[in-house]
Amino acid sequence: MDVFMKGLSKAKEGVVAAAEKTKQGVAEAAGKTKEGVLYVGSKTKEGVVHGVATVAEKTKEQVTNVGGAVVTGVTAVAQKTVEGAGSIAAATGFVKKDQLGKNEEGAPQEGILEDMPVDPDNEAYEMPSEEGYQDYEPEA
């Protein structure tokens, strides 16, 4: 019985440690998101679009440190934060509304985080759909 109880105690310690790591990862992701939003706020009209992409990228980098179902929630929060940063930029006159959601080359930025393969159960990952990809044929 002692062996059984000791095993359960060790398992509990492992769960607590994993929860603490997840909590730490979420806190880091939130900190990076805040950094990115402050970065966007300090940019001029020309830099705002690039700044919004930076927020998304920093958040995406930190999301990889967070495991399990938390990833889905962090990704949703990050996307809403990026959308909010863009709205703030438009409201303050840093950028025109028609410039939001495009990178410096004018290509749409939507789907940055949505296409990231995420499995809350950590069982399997699927690649994003290939609808947006084109076949590449090298020139002879």
Score class of each variant (00 low, 15 high):
102 K>V: 08
84 G>I: 15
130 E>C: 08
76 A>Q: 15
29 A>K: 06
48 V>G: 01
6 K>P: 00
121 D>V: 04
75 T>H: 13
66 V>W: 10
138 P>E: 04
45 K>N: 03
97 K>Y: 02
42 S>W: 10
37 V>Y: 15
6 K>L: 03
82 V>N: 03
138 P>L: 02
75 T>C: 08
64 T>D: 03
41 G>A: 15
121 D>I: 11
118 V>E: 12
110 E>Y: 08
51 G>P: 04
20 E>T: 12
106 G>N: 10
125 Y>P: 04
66 V>Q: 02
123 E>H: 14
12 K>R: 07
38 L>M: 14
70 V>I: 10
103 N>R: 11
131 E>N: 07
108 P>A: 05
41 G>Q: 06
65 N>V: 10
83 E>P: 10
78 A>I: 15
41 G>W: 09
139 E>I: 12
9 S>E: 11
15 V>T: 02
24 Q>Y: 13
29 A>C: 13
7 G>T: 14
118 V>C: 13
54 T>E: 04
5 M>T: 01
104 E>G: 07
28 E>W: 05
32 K>H: 13
128 P>H: 03
42 S>Y: 06
65 N>P: 03
50 H>A: 10
20 E>K: 05
134 Q>R: 09
57 E>S: 05
3 V>L: 15
74 V>R: 01
64 T>V: 08
15 V>D: 00
90 A>K: 14
88 I>P: 02
17 A>W: 08
139 E>T: 02
94 F>V: 04
12 K>N: 01
4 F>T: 01
96 K>F: 13
100 L>E: 06
52 V>H: 01
19 A>R: 05
19 A>M: 06
22 T>R: 02
76 A>R: 08
11 A>V: 08
92 T>V: 13
62 Q>K: 04
136 Y>P: 04
79 Q>M: 08
67 G>Q: 07
62 Q>V: 07
126 E>G: 11
58 K>S: 08
139 E>M: 07
28 E>V: 10
6 K>G: 06
51 G>K: 10
90 A>D: 03
106 G>K: 12
71 V>T: 02
35 E>P: 01
86 G>F: 15
48 V>T: 03
80 K>Y: 07
97 K>V: 03
96 K>D: 06
75 T>A: 15
130 E>I: 08
49 V>S: 10
15 V>K: 00
98 D>H: 12
30 A>V: 04
99 Q>G: 11
128 P>E: 09
69 A>V: 13
